[in-house]
């Protein structure tokens, strides 16, 4: 008997005013697997993540996550599914009115069912894992970009979610910090076996973390294949994008004429 995918997108369309961002996306992600999404800027990668998290609604098609159809559901019903999902936002989205400790504890406090002592222990364990033990009482404004990212990761993984979404987990970070972050995400995946979907512009680093990579172009997934061989993908557009070549079939990666 085949296992139902953790994420299933069927012919999903999404439009913002006149611009069609997603033009019939279909995608399955198996439970426990890790999928990376790549593509040119504004190709709809983050929109897909928001659809999976139930933060946006599709205009057409069906989004099914953890056996729940999200399409057309109300906020309260979506909240039930979201509690099983961890998400790292592109710009951290840390609560600036809370300390590091309270930020990480927030999903557990809202979920309920844990004592304050158990939450404090769990938060301390997560902060140790991301190397921020000792910074519990700092406000997020006092942190560097890399530290904020690590707080975001601690918050996304504190509840041991069944599905974890990473939107640009290493954007703006130096190569050493980038590698540290990916090592951290990989160690976490070994521990939780959660399904992971990640978007990143750093294809080389992403390929070292995920099992498969899907390439998004003009609102469609035009390629999906093993992460390890993405640089040698049979599709010339994927090869051009991954290798960062200006000449090739991709039309919108060339610099604009003056």
């Amino acid at each position: 008997m085949s296992v139902a995918p953790a994420i299933r997108l069927t012919d999903v369309h999404k439009r913002y005013e006149k611009r069609e961002v997603l033009a019939g996306i279909s995608l399955d992600v198996a439970p426990g697997s890790r999928l990376g999404l790549i593509g040119p800027a504004a190709s709809g990668k983050s929109v897909i993540l928001k659809l999976i998290a139930g933060l946006e609604q599709a205009d057409g098609g069906t989004v099914t996550v953890l056996d729940h159809v999200l399409t057309g559901k109300r906020e309260v019903q979506l909240g039930v599914v979201r509690r099983r999902i961890g998400m790292l936002f592109q710009n951290y989205a840390l609560f600036d009115f809370l300390t590091v400790e309270r930020n990480v504890a927030f999903p557990l406090e809202q979920r309920g069912g844990m004592t304050a002592h158990a939450i404090a222990e769990r938060v301390a364990e997560r902060l140790r894992a991301v190397g921020l033990f000792g910074s519990e009482h700092k406000l997020t404004a006092e942190l560097s970009g890399g530290m904020k990212k690590r707080v975001g990761i601690a918050r996304a993984t504190v509840a041991d979610a069944e599905l974890v979404i990473y939107d640009e987990p290493t954007a703006g970070l130096d190569p050493v910090t980038t590698q540290k972050i990916y090592d951290l995400l990989a160690a976490d995946h070994v521990r939780t076996k959660a399904t992971v979907i990640a978007v990143s512009s750093d294809v080389a680093a992403l390929a070292g973390f995920v099992d498969e990579i899907a390439f998004l172009y003009h609102g469609k997934i035009i390629y999906r294949g093993p992460a390890a061989t993405i640089a040698d993908a049979p599709d010339p557009m994927v090869r051009q994008f991954v290798r960062g070549e200006l000449e090739g079939p991709l039309q919108d990666v060339r610099p604009e004429a003056p």
Partner: peptide, 14 residues
């Protein structure tokens, strides 16, 4: 605009 509202929603908060 800093996605904190989305982060609240992800924690199951209205």
């Amino acid at each position: 605009v800093t996605e904190q509202i989305d982060a609240l929603r992800m924690s199951g908060v209205q």
